[in-house]
Amino acid sequence: MRVPSFARAAVFALPLLSISLPALADIKIGVGVPLSGRLAAVGTQLRRGADQAVADINAKGGVLGQKLVVDAVDDGGEPTQSVAAANRLVTDRVAMVMGHMTTGTTMPAAQVYADEGVIVITPSSTSPELTAQGWDTLFRTCGRDDQQGQVIGAYLAEHYKGGKIAVVDDQTTYGKGLADAVRATLKAKGVPVALNGTLTAGEKDFSSMVTRLKSADVDAVFYGGLYPEAGLLVRQSRTAGLKAAFLAGDTLASDEFWTTAGAMGEGVMMAYNADVRQSPAAKEALDSFRKNGGEPNIFSLYSYAAVQVWAQAAAKAGSTDPKKVAAVLHSGQEFTTAVGPVSYDAKGDRKQNDYVIYAWHNGAYAPLAKQ
């Protein structure tokens, strides 16, 4: 029997009705931070920021119609582990990486990402050496050591010009780099350093350094290093009767510093970006954090911003292709984030610089002017 043409068309069309197009694959967002070891407290906060940013972006439809998923790897806060973490994330074909925490871990990992063409945005690695490498794929949402070093050095020069100032570092890329920036600023302002010293990251007994500080009768101590050793140095110095003022860098913006130093951390100062938690730009993100686990550490907002920057750049590029996204990031345009407007110079550094001096008081820190 001859089948009418319209019927044949219907018959041939029937199988097509059962064919569905494959769903778009999720976009993997890599997270490389210390989730174990002595820096895990801040690393966990950084991951929390990325997790919340992904959740909030997905709630608004994701990026280019695709959902984001977090692929987190523990780098232990160690350079060798960060390389392994970077290789793992590259193998997992992540679209970008939020990480790593310190300059010492970001530097070797960033080389892996550069070689593989993967964008990495660090929320907390501040060494100028990072962006001096010429990697087109490296960016940050934080500032630089030379910027905060100038603020710290200027504060010391103004308030302790006639006294004895000690500058101590932990010999890490971050700690020494920041201490050298402070030393350079003091020198430029004609203020001598009465004592230069070094510690070793990871050690716990700083009695010999405390003895040197006491013998020199210093009035102020700047410590370039991470919060675990900073807390111990302050505690041991105060226990030994040293009354000198203590200052450090942005690493002290961690509750773990106060946990270690306790009440002896009272009055300890640090440089950090202006408190974005007081800014209207952070309100939406803060509301999300508070609904899902309570008040975030300030580091969480900078990792949140890292994911926001990439997501907005990908949307503007109309692609997750790293070269296209990097071109948008390098274009100089502003991105709206939880830490305020973010735009980049040719090196991948933020154009915005708003470091101020904070002081710890009764378990919390606040800008000095508001104490």
Rank of each mutant, 00 (worst) to 15 (best):
F257G: 09
W258H: 13
T259P: 11
T260H: 01
A261T: 12
A263W: 00
M264P: 02
M264D: 15
E266W: 03
G267T: 13
M269Y: 08
A274K: 15
D275G: 04
R277F: 07
S279L: 13
S279N: 13
P280N: 10
P280L: 11
A281K: 03
A281P: 04
A282K: 08
A282V: 03
E284F: 00
E284A: 10
D287E: 15
D287W: 03
D287P: 12
S288N: 10
F289S: 14
F289C: 14
R290I: 04
R290S: 09
K291I: 01
K291N: 06
N292R: 11
G293C: 10
G293W: 01
G293A: 12
G294I: 02
G294C: 09
G294R: 08
P296S: 07
N297S: 15
I298E: 07
F299A: 15
S300N: 09
S300K: 05
L301Y: 10
S303N: 13
Y304Q: 05
A305Q: 09
A305Y: 00
A305R: 07
A305I: 04
A306N: 07
A306F: 11
A306W: 03
V307M: 06
V307P: 05
Q308L: 11
V309M: 02
V309F: 02
V309A: 04
W310F: 12
A311F: 08
Q312M: 09
Q312L: 01
A313C: 09
A314M: 02
A315L: 00
S319Y: 00
T320S: 05
P322K: 01
K323M: 10
K323E: 07
K324L: 06
A326F: 02
A326D: 03
V328I: 11
L329D: 03
H330G: 05
S331A: 14
S331V: 10
Q333A: 05
E334C: 06
E334W: 02
F335N: 09
T336I: 01
T336C: 04
T337C: 11
T337K: 11
T337P: 11
V339Q: 08
G340E: 14
G340V: 05
P341D: 11
P341I: 00
P341R: 02
P341E: 02
Y344W: 07
D345T: 04
D345Y: 05
K347S: 14
K347H: 10
G348T: 00
G348D: 06
D349E: 15
D349C: 12
D349Y: 03
